[in-house]
Amino acid sequence: MAEHVVLFTGPMGAGKTAAIASLSDIDPVRTEAANTDRVTADKATTTVALDYGEITIGPDEKVRLYGIPGQTRFEFMWKVLMRRAVGMILLVNNDNPDPIGQMLYFIDYFHELYERGGAVVAISRSDVGLGPTREEYYSALAAARPGLSIPIFSVDARSPEQMKIALFSLILNIESRAAVPSRYEEPRQ
């Protein structure tokens, strides 16, 4: 069976669980525990192992959606989940105290995944009016990690339509990056 694993990364409270629920054909598998760290994210539960959802493409093909636990304490799970993934949707909540720093942190950690496939940044909770603009995310990314091809969108993680656009863009970007350079470009190493 052909499978394509897409990882949903990002800090606690960014909407990874909601994003998977928006896309999955099945009721997602959740491993949530009561959240005792209400300072970092004021929500009742938090993911401690993984979230899992899937999209069935055909009888022999699925897109598997894995969500990481966002807290760095669970970093050992990140490595486990990264192994089979071909790309990531990195969710960052715009009302995070340091959303751009978080974006760069996760891009760096999962750089191997970017190299292997690709990444999309999905900014959640930008409707609350706090935090940087999308343009500022792009500028920060270009300044800190020049040369990366990563689409950045604002999203409502609860919106299936918006999350489909993010996933579509991820796959298109992976496919396009894998193509040979055009006549105007230097061949890639």
């Binding site: 999209i55 493409i57 897109v63 496939g117 579509f168």
Partner: peptide, 16 residues
């Protein structure tokens, strides 16, 4: 391009 890294997943997902 589509036939390279993901085996043309995009077009099948679009159909799906």
């Amino acid at each position: 391009d589509a036939e390279r890294s993901t085996g043309g997943l995009w077009s099948r997902l679009r159909d799906r």
